[in-house]
Amino acid sequence: MTTNAPIEAKVRSATAASFVVSLLIAVLNAVAGDSRLLAPLPSWLQAVVIALIPAALTFLAGWQAPHTARSGEPPAGPPASR
């Protein structure tokens, strides 16, 4: 596993989508619901926590997911010995 591998588009897209949906849910919860679960935190921090945790988990899951090889692309892994 390389440590300097670029972040794939699928990971960036999944993270962005998760963040937007989580932020929407946080706003709806603040406007229409009762947020007792995170009551010890200030309201602005509740929104940040609700929005960032799912995005971070989505990013980690996408990062750990294996890359799907495309046609014409060499298989991932160490180079073969000759």
Rank of each mutant, 00 (worst) to 15 (best):
L60A: 14
W44I: 05
P40T: 12
P66R: 12
D34F: 01
L28G: 14
R12I: 13
P6A: 06
S22N: 04
A55H: 04
P66V: 00
T3P: 01
G33A: 10
T3S: 14
G33R: 05
W63K: 14
A14F: 00
A69S: 09
A47F: 03
V48P: 01
V27H: 11
P54S: 08
F19E: 01
N29E: 11
G33W: 12
V48W: 10
L57P: 02
G62V: 04
S22E: 05
I7N: 00
A65L: 14
S18P: 04
L23H: 05
V21W: 01
L24P: 00
L37R: 08
H67P: 00
V49E: 08
R82L: 10
A69H: 12
G62P: 01
S71Y: 10
F59H: 12
A51L: 03
W44K: 02
A80R: 14
L52V: 15
A56G: 15
N29H: 12
E73W: 01
S43W: 05
T3I: 11
R36P: 07
A16G: 06
A61P: 00
F19G: 08
A5P: 00
P42R: 09
L28Y: 07
S43E: 15
P6V: 02
P42M: 10
L23N: 14
A5N: 13
A51R: 02
P54M: 12
T58Y: 00
V27C: 09
T3A: 09
P78W: 08
L52W: 03
L23A: 15
L45M: 13
A39I: 07
S18Q: 03
E8K: 13
G33Q: 07
I25D: 03
P75M: 01
A69I: 08
A80I: 09
R36F: 10
A61E: 04
V11T: 11
L28W: 08
L38R: 05
L24G: 15
Q64P: 00
I53H: 01
F19K: 03
A76H: 05
V31H: 02
P74T: 08
G62W: 02
F59M: 05
P6Q: 04
A32S: 11
R12H: 06
A5M: 09
S22I: 06
K10V: 02
F19V: 04
A26R: 02
L28T: 07
L37P: 00
R12D: 01
L41N: 06
P6W: 07
A39K: 13
E8H: 07
S71N: 08
G62T: 05
W63A: 12
Q46V: 12
P79Q: 12
V27T: 10
T3C: 06
A56F: 11
A9C: 04
P54T: 03
N4H: 14
M1L: 10
P66K: 11
I7L: 13
T3Q: 10
A16T: 11
A55L: 04
I53N: 01
R12N: 06
T3M: 10
P66Y: 02
L52Q: 08
A14T: 07
A30H: 15
S35E: 13
A14I: 03
P6R: 09
E73Q: 15
T68F: 02
P78N: 09
A30T: 12
L60V: 12
S43K: 10
E8W: 04
R12E: 04
A47H: 08
L60W: 12
R82S: 11
L28D: 07
R82F: 09
G77R: 06
T58F: 03
P66F: 00
T3Y: 06
